[in-house]
Design a protein around this nucleic acid. Structure first.
Lengths: 336, 336
DNA sequence: AAGATATATGGCACCGATACCATTTAATTG
DNA sequence: CAATTAAATGGTATCGGTGCCATATATCTT
């Protein structure tokens, strides 16, 4: 690949002049400018990204870590963020971590090494290890979870939606509709996001004085298959709730499928509310009621927080909290 | 961020020694090694990616351009590719182009500037402009389409699955089952992949001596909504085919929804076959018959082609062609 | 016309690693 | 024990830009 030196030699000017011409800043006569551009094109010149960012300390790239590319919930976040980043002249570089802690650390190290100017970090679970890694890299990182600082020394931003509140409001709705046999298919409670959701369920049940039936409680892994399996288990154990809150849409669809397969009608036999309100929710028959987790807003805010740090030099920590909304569709209607 | 020079000064050795110690190659006494590592940790050192790749001319990154992050078809490709790349110590950097030609060119320029060591390029459509851009950057690029070289001078690799064949085999199946009123919801025929699919439909109909009814032909944009809208149009025009081939799963699901909404039974009233065989195909009731486009294999082969070029220095052009498979499920069964 | 300002261009240090060579000291060998 | 060879370390050019300063004209002021 050609360099500015080769172009300079060819045209008969100094490398400085070539650099100015190609960058379009600083003085350069029309005559030389044209020559330089022509030669650059002929030699198929492209400025070296490495050389530029070595000197200028900027890459114009933002890393975006997502734990599960099969989950449509994250698409909205990506869209929201990349819209904002695009507008500010930043590239969005996605990285699929699969929730793997090793991969996350690897990418945080890469950030520290200057792969990008900042990061939007989505993870199923934040623990001391990856939080330490976040703090260790001096570049701005935004977490999209509700991270309760343990040390108080964390200096990163957060934007998150209250998942606890989401499940809570779904349960409350069922209770307000007179349901008493309410089930819950949750996610992995060894990770934060799974725990929060389950806590929302318990609080609503408690407040509504609705007994928690252990047979109506299942734990999946946020995949459709695990939702289907959980429902199958309840059906074959002959303990099927009348209303079911599911911790994400994928599992809700799995549960819905299992019900249909065994002749249970939705919502007459089992009313279902999912979570995330993804595109999938309107793909089913009946359409799935779901909790809107405003993922596009999360992405947009996360990008804005980054831009504030990078472009405006903000130093102090900021946290943004969003409220979920319940979208009622066919799957949760109470029979008259 | 600390540099090897600062560490060298602190420990009292030369930068060369620090570099050797940190990289773990070359000679270094245990005593100094330990000191260097300790100081590096204390100063929170991270090697500068820019400096390293400027000198070494390698980034260990592969760019992966996807046109639509809402389409699960691409996830398998990403998975297949990143598995192979991971194994070889390369990062997969995803970039969502939204099929935007400007964005594609921007990323090809970035590649040329040395942002990555190679690229897997997925696009709805390849035209002279972006093909020229591919040829212009001396780094290896793999296209995941069937690109018919016009100039014969192209030096990039391709791995693709025959979409023509896919639609063709779906139509042939319907014809073999005795269907004569066969409809088709296609994609944008101004782009290559849309044209190929439509050609497959026409060839099968022609070979089977089945008349093509214009009322059964619709053109969508590969989104679920457009599939729904197309079907709605046929229904309200009272010209509904008995069998329907749809150019991707998303549109097929849209069509399925429209049918259900208007009381048409699947597959009794309308038999449907989708394309891509994504996870979505098993989310519907009945499950959607679909054409398996082997996206994970495409991704894997694409990554392998890149690795051959980068690690083994292959120069000559290679093209890999895969054959689709028909997966029959509930949505296409012929009534007895 | 003298001084100020704008335009045009070149020179060079620098960013932070890597690659390679030179030098010194320690260990091995016939 | 001299001759090799291995181990340990330092020195320095280099990658390809950017940023800043110096210099030389050209144009504009009053």
């Amino acid at each position: 690949m050609a360099t500015i030196y080769e172009i300079a030699q060819e045209v008969g000017v100094s490398p400085s002049t070539v650099a100015r011409a190609l960058r379009g800043t600083g003085y350069c006569s029309k005559e030389k400018y044209d020559k330089i551009i022509a030669v650059a094109k002929r030699l198929n010149y492209a400025p070296s990204h490495a050389a530029r960012s070595l000197k200028s300390k900027r890459t114009n790239k933002i890393l975006f870590l997502i734990p599960d590319i099969y989950n449509p919930f994250y698409f909205g976040m990506i869209k929201g963020a990349s819209d904002v980043l695009d507008q500010n002249g930043y590239y969005t570089i996605l990285c699929h971590t699969r929730g793997d802690k090793g991969m996350e650390k690897k990418m945080l190290r890469s950030l520290k090494e200057g792969y990008g100017d900042g990061m939007i970090f989505v993870s199923f679970d934040f623990n001391k290890e990856n939080i330490d890694a976040v703090n260790a890299c001096a570049l701005p990182v935004v977490l999209t979870n509700n991270y309760q600082s343990l040390s108080g020394n964390d200096h990163f931003d957060c934007v998150y939606i209250d998942t606890f509140e989401g499940i809570y409001m779904a349960c409350k709705y069922f209770i307000s509709q007179g349901f008493r046999k309410i089930g819950y298919i949750g996610g992995d409670t060894t990770v934060q996001t799974g725990r929060e959701r389950f806590a929302g369920f318990l609080k609503a049940m408690n407040e509504g004085n609705v007994p928690v039936n252990q047979n109506f409680l299942k734990e999946g892994d946020f995949s459709r298959d695990s939702g289907e399996k959980s429902m199958e288990e309840m059906i074959s154990a002959r303990s099927v709730p009348e209303a079911l809150v599911v911790a994400n849409d994928l599992m809700a669809i799995g549960a819905l499928k299992a019900c249909k397969k065994h002749g249970l009608h939705i919502p007459q036999d089992v009313a279902i509310i999912g979570m995330d309100n993804t595109d999938l929710a309107t793909c089913t028959v009946p359409e799935l009621s779901s909790i809107n987790m405003k993922e596009e807003d999360i992405g947009r805010y996360a990008a804005e927080l980054l831009m504030e740090r990078i472009l405006k030099g903000r130093k102090e920590k900021r946290t943004i909290r969003l409220q979920p909304e319940l979208f009622l569709r066919g799957s949760s209607r109470r029979e008259a």
